[in-house]
Amino acid sequence: MQSDTVVKKDLNKDIKKNINLASKRERMKNYVYALVFLAPFMVLYLWFWVYPIVQGFISSFYTGSYGVEQTFAGFENYIYMAQDSKFWVSFGNTLYFVLISTPTIVVLGLLMALFVNMKLKGTTILRSIYFMPYMLSISVMGSIWVFILQSRTGLLSETLKMVGITTEIQWFGSWEMGWLSILIATLWWTAGFNMILFLAGLQEIPDDLYEAADIDGASSWKKFWYITLPSLKGVTAMVILLQTIASFKLFGQTFLITNGGPGISTTPLVHYVYQIAFRQWEMGYASAVSFVLFIAVLLISLIQYKVTKTKK
Protein backbone atom coordinates (compact mmCIF):
# COMPACT_ATOMS: atom_id res chain seq x y z
CA MET A 1 0.00 0.00 0.00
CA GLN A 2 2.74 2.34 0.99
CA SER A 3 4.75 1.47 -2.06
CA ASP A 4 1.65 2.05 -4.14
CA THR A 5 1.43 5.64 -3.05
CA VAL A 6 5.11 6.02 -3.70
CA VAL A 7 4.65 4.82 -7.24
CA LYS A 8 1.73 7.16 -7.65
CA LYS A 9 3.80 10.02 -6.31
CA ASP A 10 6.59 9.19 -8.70
CA LEU A 11 4.17 9.10 -11.55
CA ASN A 12 2.76 12.42 -10.53
CA LYS A 13 6.22 13.84 -10.33
CA ASP A 14 6.96 12.57 -13.79
CA ILE A 15 3.86 14.13 -15.24
CA LYS A 16 4.54 17.36 -13.44
CA LYS A 17 8.09 17.34 -14.69
CA ASN A 18 6.87 16.89 -18.21
CA ILE A 19 4.35 19.67 -17.83
CA ASN A 20 7.02 21.85 -16.29
CA LEU A 21 9.32 21.11 -19.16
CA ALA A 22 6.63 21.95 -21.67
CA SER A 23 5.72 25.17 -19.91
CA LYS A 24 9.37 26.00 -19.58
CA ARG A 25 9.78 25.61 -23.29
CA GLU A 26 6.61 27.63 -23.78
CA ARG A 27 7.95 30.34 -21.52
CA MET A 28 11.28 30.40 -23.32
CA LYS A 29 9.43 30.76 -26.56
CA ASN A 30 7.37 33.60 -25.16
CA TYR A 31 10.53 35.31 -24.03
CA VAL A 32 12.00 35.13 -27.47
CA TYR A 33 8.82 36.43 -29.08
CA ALA A 34 8.51 39.25 -26.57
CA LEU A 35 12.14 40.14 -27.11
CA VAL A 36 11.72 40.30 -30.87
CA PHE A 37 8.61 42.46 -30.63
CA LEU A 38 10.02 44.75 -27.97
CA ALA A 39 13.59 45.08 -29.20
CA PRO A 40 13.19 47.86 -31.80
CA PHE A 41 11.12 49.96 -29.43
CA MET A 42 13.38 49.43 -26.45
CA VAL A 43 16.56 50.14 -28.41
CA LEU A 44 15.22 53.49 -29.60
CA TYR A 45 13.68 54.27 -26.26
CA LEU A 46 16.73 53.45 -24.16
CA TRP A 47 19.10 55.12 -26.60
CA PHE A 48 17.27 58.40 -27.22
CA TRP A 49 15.22 58.88 -24.04
CA VAL A 50 16.55 56.95 -21.05
CA TYR A 51 20.26 57.37 -21.72
CA PRO A 52 20.06 61.17 -22.25
CA ILE A 53 18.06 61.55 -19.04
CA VAL A 54 20.77 59.75 -17.07
CA GLN A 55 23.54 61.54 -18.96
CA GLY A 56 21.91 64.91 -18.37
CA PHE A 57 21.60 64.22 -14.66
CA ILE A 58 25.27 63.25 -14.44
CA SER A 59 26.52 66.26 -16.37
CA SER A 60 24.57 68.58 -14.10
CA PHE A 61 27.32 67.83 -11.57
CA TYR A 62 30.09 68.79 -13.95
CA THR A 63 31.25 71.98 -15.55
CA GLY A 64 32.48 72.23 -19.10
CA SER A 65 31.45 72.69 -22.69
CA TYR A 66 30.84 70.41 -25.65
CA GLY A 67 33.80 68.28 -26.58
CA VAL A 68 35.88 69.74 -23.77
CA GLU A 69 37.19 67.82 -20.78
CA GLN A 70 34.63 68.12 -18.02
CA THR A 71 35.48 68.65 -14.40
CA PHE A 72 33.50 67.39 -11.45
CA ALA A 73 31.88 70.25 -9.62
CA GLY A 74 29.58 68.62 -7.08
CA PHE A 75 26.54 70.73 -6.37
CA GLU A 76 28.18 73.89 -7.70
CA ASN A 77 25.74 74.23 -10.61
CA TYR A 78 22.76 73.87 -8.33
CA ILE A 79 24.15 76.34 -5.81
CA TYR A 80 24.83 78.77 -8.64
CA MET A 81 21.29 78.26 -9.89
CA ALA A 82 19.80 79.11 -6.50
CA GLN A 83 21.60 82.47 -6.65
CA ASP A 84 21.10 83.10 -10.36
CA SER A 85 18.53 85.86 -10.69
CA LYS A 86 18.09 85.10 -14.41
CA PHE A 87 17.05 81.55 -13.56
CA TRP A 88 14.45 82.82 -11.11
CA VAL A 89 13.18 85.39 -13.61
CA SER A 90 12.73 82.71 -16.26
CA PHE A 91 11.12 80.36 -13.75
CA GLY A 92 8.78 83.14 -12.67
CA ASN A 93 8.01 83.91 -16.32
CA THR A 94 7.05 80.30 -16.89
CA LEU A 95 4.71 80.35 -13.88
CA TYR A 96 3.27 83.66 -15.04
CA PHE A 97 2.48 82.16 -18.42
CA VAL A 98 0.77 79.21 -16.72
CA LEU A 99 -1.27 81.72 -14.76
CA ILE A 100 -2.42 83.79 -17.75
CA SER A 101 -2.70 81.11 -20.41
CA THR A 102 -4.55 78.36 -18.53
CA PRO A 103 -7.80 80.16 -17.67
CA THR A 104 -8.00 81.90 -21.03
CA ILE A 105 -7.43 78.73 -23.00
CA VAL A 106 -10.00 76.83 -20.94
CA VAL A 107 -12.64 79.53 -21.47
CA LEU A 108 -11.91 79.99 -25.17
CA GLY A 109 -11.63 76.28 -25.92
CA LEU A 110 -14.83 75.53 -24.07
CA LEU A 111 -16.66 78.39 -25.77
CA MET A 112 -15.61 77.14 -29.19
CA ALA A 113 -16.61 73.58 -28.33
CA LEU A 114 -20.03 74.77 -27.16
CA PHE A 115 -20.55 76.77 -30.36
CA VAL A 116 -19.58 73.81 -32.50
CA ASN A 117 -21.69 71.41 -30.44
CA MET A 118 -24.85 73.53 -30.79
CA LYS A 119 -25.58 72.28 -34.29
CA LEU A 120 -25.70 75.80 -35.71
CA LYS A 121 -25.84 76.34 -39.44
CA GLY A 122 -22.32 76.06 -40.83
CA THR A 123 -20.92 74.04 -37.92
CA THR A 124 -18.32 72.43 -40.15
CA ILE A 125 -17.06 75.83 -41.26
CA LEU A 126 -16.92 77.11 -37.70
CA ARG A 127 -15.04 74.06 -36.51
CA SER A 128 -12.60 74.25 -39.41
CA ILE A 129 -11.85 77.92 -38.84
CA TYR A 130 -11.43 77.50 -35.09
CA PHE A 131 -9.06 74.60 -35.60
CA MET A 132 -7.16 75.69 -38.71
CA PRO A 133 -4.51 77.87 -37.02
CA TYR A 134 -3.29 74.79 -35.16
CA MET A 135 -2.30 73.26 -38.49
CA LEU A 136 0.11 76.10 -39.24
CA SER A 137 3.78 75.60 -38.63
CA ILE A 138 4.89 77.38 -35.47
CA SER A 139 7.16 79.63 -37.52
CA VAL A 140 4.35 80.73 -39.82
CA MET A 141 2.24 81.46 -36.77
CA GLY A 142 5.07 83.47 -35.23
CA SER A 143 5.74 85.43 -38.40
CA ILE A 144 2.06 86.33 -38.83
CA TRP A 145 1.83 87.71 -35.30
CA VAL A 146 5.05 89.66 -35.56
CA PHE A 147 3.71 91.35 -38.68
CA ILE A 148 0.37 92.02 -37.04
CA LEU A 149 1.66 93.40 -33.77
CA GLN A 150 4.89 95.16 -34.64
CA SER A 151 4.80 98.87 -33.91
CA ARG A 152 4.33 101.52 -36.65
CA THR A 153 3.99 99.14 -39.60
CA GLY A 154 1.99 96.31 -38.05
CA LEU A 155 -1.48 95.46 -39.31
CA LEU A 156 -3.06 96.30 -35.99
CA SER A 157 -1.29 99.61 -35.65
CA GLU A 158 -2.20 100.64 -39.23
CA THR A 159 -5.81 99.63 -38.70
CA LEU A 160 -6.03 101.55 -35.45
CA LYS A 161 -4.58 104.58 -37.21
CA MET A 162 -7.30 104.30 -39.82
CA VAL A 163 -9.94 104.46 -37.10
CA GLY A 164 -8.19 107.50 -35.70
CA ILE A 165 -6.30 105.96 -32.80
CA THR A 166 -2.72 107.07 -33.21
CA THR A 167 -1.34 106.09 -29.82
CA GLU A 168 1.53 103.72 -30.52
CA ILE A 169 1.28 100.46 -28.60
CA GLN A 170 4.66 98.83 -28.04
CA TRP A 171 3.55 95.20 -28.16
CA PHE A 172 7.02 93.82 -27.65
CA GLY A 173 8.33 96.67 -25.55
CA SER A 174 7.68 95.55 -22.00
CA TRP A 175 7.17 92.57 -19.76
CA GLU A 176 3.37 92.86 -19.64
CA MET A 177 2.88 93.63 -23.33
CA GLY A 178 5.39 91.01 -24.44
CA TRP A 179 3.57 88.31 -22.54
CA LEU A 180 0.23 89.61 -23.77
CA SER A 181 1.46 89.24 -27.37
CA ILE A 182 2.65 85.72 -26.70
CA LEU A 183 -0.64 84.90 -25.02
CA ILE A 184 -2.71 86.18 -27.95
CA ALA A 185 -0.62 84.28 -30.47
CA THR A 186 -0.75 81.09 -28.39
CA LEU A 187 -4.51 81.34 -27.93
CA TRP A 188 -5.05 81.85 -31.62
CA TRP A 189 -2.79 78.94 -32.44
CA THR A 190 -3.85 76.32 -29.90
CA ALA A 191 -7.37 77.10 -28.68
CA GLY A 192 -8.70 74.90 -31.48
CA PHE A 193 -6.76 71.94 -30.16
CA ASN A 194 -8.35 72.37 -26.75
CA MET A 195 -11.72 72.82 -28.42
CA ILE A 196 -11.40 69.28 -29.79
CA LEU A 197 -10.71 67.93 -26.30
CA PHE A 198 -13.76 69.72 -24.91
CA LEU A 199 -15.83 68.59 -27.86
CA ALA A 200 -14.96 64.96 -27.14
CA GLY A 201 -15.98 65.57 -23.54
CA LEU A 202 -19.27 67.17 -24.57
CA GLN A 203 -20.14 64.27 -26.81
CA GLU A 204 -19.67 61.83 -23.94
CA ILE A 205 -22.47 63.44 -21.92
CA PRO A 206 -25.51 61.16 -22.26
CA ASP A 207 -28.51 62.76 -23.97
CA ASP A 208 -31.02 61.49 -21.42
CA LEU A 209 -29.55 63.86 -18.83
CA TYR A 210 -30.69 66.76 -21.00
CA GLU A 211 -33.99 65.10 -21.80
CA ALA A 212 -34.73 64.65 -18.11
CA ALA A 213 -33.87 68.30 -17.54
CA ASP A 214 -36.18 69.30 -20.40
CA ILE A 215 -39.05 67.43 -18.77
CA ASP A 216 -38.34 69.32 -15.57
CA GLY A 217 -38.52 72.54 -17.61
CA ALA A 218 -34.93 73.60 -16.94
CA SER A 219 -33.62 76.65 -18.81
CA SER A 220 -30.63 76.28 -21.12
CA TRP A 221 -28.52 78.25 -18.67
CA LYS A 222 -29.46 75.86 -15.85
CA LYS A 223 -28.75 72.86 -18.05
CA PHE A 224 -25.33 74.28 -18.84
CA TRP A 225 -24.58 75.04 -15.21
CA TYR A 226 -25.89 71.81 -13.65
CA ILE A 227 -25.26 69.23 -16.38
CA THR A 228 -22.67 70.38 -18.91
CA LEU A 229 -20.10 71.99 -16.64
CA PRO A 230 -20.01 69.23 -13.98
CA SER A 231 -19.72 66.59 -16.70
CA LEU A 232 -16.69 68.38 -18.14
CA LYS A 233 -14.71 68.35 -14.90
CA GLY A 234 -12.40 65.59 -16.09
CA VAL A 235 -11.68 67.18 -19.47
CA THR A 236 -11.16 70.59 -17.88
CA ALA A 237 -8.66 69.14 -15.42
CA MET A 238 -6.84 67.55 -18.32
CA VAL A 239 -6.80 70.74 -20.40
CA ILE A 240 -5.45 72.66 -17.40
CA LEU A 241 -2.66 70.16 -16.83
CA LEU A 242 -1.80 69.90 -20.54
CA GLN A 243 -1.61 73.68 -20.74
CA THR A 244 0.55 73.80 -17.62
CA ILE A 245 2.95 71.31 -19.17
CA ALA A 246 2.88 73.22 -22.46
CA SER A 247 3.78 76.40 -20.58
CA PHE A 248 6.75 74.66 -19.00
CA LYS A 249 7.85 73.60 -22.48
CA LEU A 250 7.24 77.06 -23.99
CA PHE A 251 10.00 78.02 -26.39
CA GLY A 252 8.91 78.61 -29.98
CA GLN A 253 6.59 81.51 -29.32
CA THR A 254 9.05 83.51 -27.24
CA PHE A 255 11.94 82.64 -29.54
CA LEU A 256 10.06 83.75 -32.67
CA ILE A 257 7.91 86.62 -31.45
CA THR A 258 9.76 88.50 -28.71
CA ASN A 259 13.10 86.70 -28.77
CA GLY A 260 12.83 86.61 -24.99
CA GLY A 261 13.12 90.36 -24.71
CA PRO A 262 13.22 93.11 -23.79
CA GLY A 263 16.16 91.89 -21.73
CA ILE A 264 15.06 88.53 -20.44
CA SER A 265 11.58 89.66 -19.48
CA THR A 266 9.82 87.19 -21.79
CA THR A 267 12.32 84.36 -21.46
CA PRO A 268 10.74 81.16 -20.11
CA LEU A 269 12.66 78.20 -18.70
CA VAL A 270 13.36 76.29 -21.93
CA HIS A 271 14.42 79.49 -23.67
CA TYR A 272 16.84 80.14 -20.82
CA VAL A 273 18.26 76.62 -21.13
CA TYR A 274 18.72 77.31 -24.84
CA GLN A 275 20.64 80.49 -24.07
CA ILE A 276 22.98 78.94 -21.53
CA ALA A 277 23.55 75.73 -23.47
CA PHE A 278 23.82 77.08 -27.01
CA ARG A 279 24.77 80.72 -26.64
CA GLN A 280 27.09 80.57 -23.65
CA TRP A 281 27.95 76.88 -24.13
CA GLU A 282 27.79 76.08 -20.43
CA MET A 283 26.62 72.52 -20.70
CA GLY A 284 26.85 71.56 -17.06
CA TYR A 285 24.80 74.48 -15.83
CA ALA A 286 22.29 74.02 -18.66
CA SER A 287 21.89 70.39 -17.60
CA ALA A 288 21.16 71.46 -14.05
CA VAL A 289 18.45 73.90 -15.19
CA SER A 290 17.09 71.20 -17.53
CA PHE A 291 16.87 68.86 -14.58
CA VAL A 292 14.67 71.34 -12.73
CA LEU A 293 12.45 71.50 -15.81
CA PHE A 294 12.39 67.71 -15.92
CA ILE A 295 11.31 67.45 -12.27
CA ALA A 296 8.67 70.16 -12.69
CA VAL A 297 7.04 68.47 -15.69
CA LEU A 298 7.32 65.08 -13.98
CA LEU A 299 5.44 66.37 -10.95
CA ILE A 300 2.69 67.95 -13.05
CA SER A 301 2.37 64.77 -15.11
CA LEU A 302 2.07 62.68 -11.96
CA ILE A 303 -0.75 64.93 -10.80
CA GLN A 304 -2.36 64.55 -14.21
CA TYR A 305 -2.00 60.77 -14.00
CA LYS A 306 -3.67 60.78 -10.58
CA VAL A 307 -6.49 63.02 -11.81
CA THR A 308 -7.26 60.91 -14.88
CA LYS A 309 -7.07 57.76 -12.74
CA THR A 310 -9.60 59.05 -10.22
CA LYS A 311 -11.82 60.18 -13.08
CA LYS A 312 -12.14 56.58 -14.13
Binding site: W49, Q55, A277, S290, F294
Partner: peptide, 26 residues
Protein backbone atom coordinates in the same frame (compact mmCIF):
# COMPACT_ATOMS: atom_id res chain seq x y z
CA UNK B 1 8.83 47.42 -18.94
CA UNK B 2 5.35 48.88 -18.92
CA UNK B 3 6.17 51.21 -16.02
CA UNK B 4 9.47 52.19 -17.63
CA UNK B 5 7.71 53.20 -20.83
CA UNK B 6 4.88 54.94 -18.99
CA UNK B 7 7.45 57.03 -17.12
CA UNK B 8 8.75 58.27 -20.46
CA UNK B 9 5.39 59.89 -21.07
CA UNK B 10 6.28 62.39 -18.41
CA UNK B 11 9.63 63.45 -19.84
CA UNK B 12 9.55 66.47 -22.14
CA UNK B 13 12.11 66.37 -24.93
CA UNK B 14 12.96 69.95 -24.05
CA UNK B 15 14.56 68.76 -20.82
CA UNK B 16 16.99 66.42 -22.56
CA UNK B 17 18.11 68.48 -25.57
CA UNK B 18 21.44 69.28 -23.95
CA UNK B 19 22.62 65.66 -23.50
CA UNK B 20 21.01 64.73 -26.82
CA UNK B 21 22.91 67.46 -28.62
CA UNK B 22 26.09 66.28 -26.93
CA UNK B 23 25.34 62.78 -28.23
CA UNK B 24 24.83 64.11 -31.76
CA UNK B 25 28.19 65.88 -31.59
CA UNK B 26 30.02 62.75 -30.51
Amino acid sequence: IFVLILAGLMVPMESIVVPLFNMMVS
